[in-house]
C-alpha cells in the first residue's frame, strides 16, 4: 500500500504522488512516515524532507518550517517555503543565517512572539546551511 504524499506551499502544489516512505522534520524530531501511520498533526522545523523509494532516498526538499498532517493513507506537508535540496546555495544560506543571527541578537526577549519568530528563523536558516553543505561535499 503506497503513501500519498503531498507537498504544498501557499503558492502552489509542488508534488503529489505515491511514495514508499517519507521522512519529515517535525518540531520534536525527524519522523519517518510509512503507510498505516497513526493520524497525526505536527509542526515542522526547518530541515529536509526525504522521499524514499525502494529503500533509497530519491528526492530531498528543504522546507523552512510549516505543518504536516498524516493519516494512514496520506501525508500532507504544508511548508512555508520549499526548495529542492540540490538548488540550495550555501552562500545565500550563510547570508540568511547572518541576518537571522543579527535579528536574534536584537530581539526583545520579553516579547514572546517576536522572540519565537526570531528563533524559528535562526533554526531554519541554520538548517538551510546544514542541508546545503552536504550536497557540495558529495559532488566534489
Amino acid at each position: 500500500m503506497p503513501l500519498a504524499l503531498e507537498i504544498i506551499s501557499p503558492e502552489k502544489l509542488l508534488l503529489s504522488r505515491d511514495v514508499d516512505m517519507v521522512v519529515i522534520p517535525g518540531t520534536e524530531g525527524d519522523l519517518g512516515i510509512l503507510p498505516g501511520h497513526a493520524n497525526l498533526i505536527t509542526g515542522l522545523r526547518g530541515g529536509l524532507v526525504d522521499i524514499y523509494a525502494g529503500g533509497q532516498i530519491t528526492e530531498r526538499y528543504f522546507v523552512s518550517g510549516g505543518f504536516a498532517e498524516v493519516t494512514d493513507t496520506h501525508c500532507a506537508v504544508l511548508a512555508d517555503s520549499i526548495i529542492r535540496q540540490s538548488d540550495l546555495n550555501p552562500a545565500t544560506a550563510a547570508t540568511l543565517l547572518d541576518e537571522a543571527k543579527a535579528d536574534y541578537a536584537a530581539v526583545n526577549m520579553a516579547d514572546q512572539d517576536s522572540y519565537l519568530r526570531a528563533s524559528d528563523r535562526l533554526i531554519s536558516a541554520q538548517a538551510m546551511l546544514d542541508s546545503a553543505a552536504p550536497a557540495r561535499a558529495e559532488k566534489t
Binding site: 501557499p10 520534536e28 493520524n39 497525526l40 498533526i41 505536527t42 509542526g43 493519516t71
Partner: peptide, 28 residues
C-alpha cells in the same frame, strides 16, 4: 467521524503557530 489526531508538540503550541498562518492564508 475520522479517528482523532495525535498532536505534536501539543494543541496549544500548534494552534499558536497555526492561527497567524491561517490568517495570512485567508488574506492571501
Amino acid at each position: 467521524a475520522p479517528a482523532p489526531y495525535e498532536i505534536e508538540p501539543d494543541d496549544g503550541t500548534l494552534l499558536a503557530r497555526l492561527l497567524p498562518r491561517n490568517l495570512a492564508v485567508q488574506i492571501y
